[in-house]
Design a protein around this nucleic acid. Structure first.
Length: 333
DNA sequence: ATATCTCCCCGCCAAA
DNA sequence: TCTTTGGCGGGGAGAT
């Protein structure tokens, strides 16, 4: 796959996260996915500095100067969309770029700008939950859905509120380079909650999503987190999936981006960490609850994957010793 | 600390 | 022929 040009369209009072989220996803993808190469450019009607709602100002290039073929066009959201959707210049340029782009997308209230160009007509779309009704009212031609985190209709993709832009961008990466690649990116960014377009957000790290198929694995993955103390050898899981070990391993790795055993161990560690942080159970009990044969096994896994020990982790993040729980995370996979 | 045993993972080939 | 699947074997890591 060659270079893919991603154009992010901004305007005064846009939402910083709408830009930063996808931007970082594409950047990370380029870094950690071997064949991915996204080139991003941030544009506005006049170019130059554009201030976001948070006050931070962006350097942009004039939208008229975009010449190269466009892979993905991203319209960001923010307070400024109300005004932007009446900016004839902007709309004209968006239409022009959209006609040359493989994919046209909007994050959050960016959908309003897209709708104003007419590009959303006859398409299913979503926006920030707070604005779905208004969008539908203003643009009856658009089929507004309010549930999903993001919606794909042909080559038009829209996403719900701000951070859903990250999920949207991950979905785009998944389309280009596969689920495993998207998961790798998510992990890289420590978005340990990659959400499916569907809606339900899973409480499992990177687990039960999978944009297209995967129902096979999805059910197993979600079953697994509640049965960490069971026998979760590759063999056992393969049986559950009615596949040979060999095939199961292959399918698993392709979809999840990690080998079965590694993934299971990561889940176990994460579960153990939570118990260490939030309970005062003895190591013995925690190890057993998380599926480690012995506390010693848990110890080694801990050492290998983090740079602490269970005891050390409890000292830092545990309940005793002052400071209650903590939001800090240690990368685990 | 060591030895033995188990499981994982991946390349390779053959069958479907 | 091309793709998917299953089985085998071994190197190697880790568990007991």
């Amino acid at each position: 796959m060659g270079k893919q040009c991603v154009v992010l369209v901004t305007f005064p009072s846009c939402q910083l996260l709408d830009i930063a989220g996808p931007l970082d996803v594409f950047e990370a993808a380029t870094r950690v996915v071997p064949r991915a190469c996204y080139q991003t450019v941030i544009v506005s009607v006049n170019g130059g500095p554009v201030s976001s709602t948070s006050g931070l100002s962006l350097t942009t290039t004039p939208i008229a100067s975009v010449r190269s073929p466009i892979d993905t066009l991203v319209i960001v959201g923010g307070d400024g969309t109300a005004e932007a959707s009446h900016d004839a210049d902007l709309l004209r340029h968006v239409r022009r770029l959209a006609s040359r782009a493989n994919r046209v997308t909007a994050v959050c209230t960016g959908a309003f700008v897209l709708a104003a160009t007419g590009l959303l007509d006859k398409h299913r779309a979503v926006t920030h939950w707070e604005w779905c009704d208004l969008l539908q009212h203003m643009y009856p031609e658009v089929t507004v859905e309010s549930e999903p985190i993001y919606v794909r209709d042909g080559n038009v993709w829209t996403s719900a509120g701000v951070t859903a832009g990250i999920d949207l961008a991950l979905a785009l990466v998944a389309e280009d380079h596969g689920n495993a690649a998207a998961n790798r990116v998510a992990r890289q960014l420590v978005v340990y909650l990659r959400r499916s377009g569907g809606q339900a957000q899973y409480s499992i790290p990177l687990a039960a999503q999978s944009i297209d198929d995967g129902h096979l694995l999805t059910s197993i993955l979600s079953w697994v987190v509640d049965h960490l103390d069971s026998n979760l050898t590759v063999n056992a899981l393969a049986n559950r999936a009615h596949l040979s070990q060999r095939q199961f391993s292959r399918v698993f790795t392709a979809h999840v981006g990690t080998t079965p055993a590694r993934y299971i161990e990561a889940l176990r560690i994460e579960a153990a960490r939570r118990l260490l942080e939030t309970t005062t159970k003895p190591m013995e009990a925690i190890a057993a609850a998380c599926g480690f044969g012995t506390p010693e096994t848990m110890n080694r896994a801990f050492r290998r994957r983090t740079n602490t020990t269970p005891t050390g982790h409890r000292k830092h993040f545990g309940m005793c010793d002052g400071l209650g729980g903590s939001d800090e995370r240690v990368a685990v996979m």
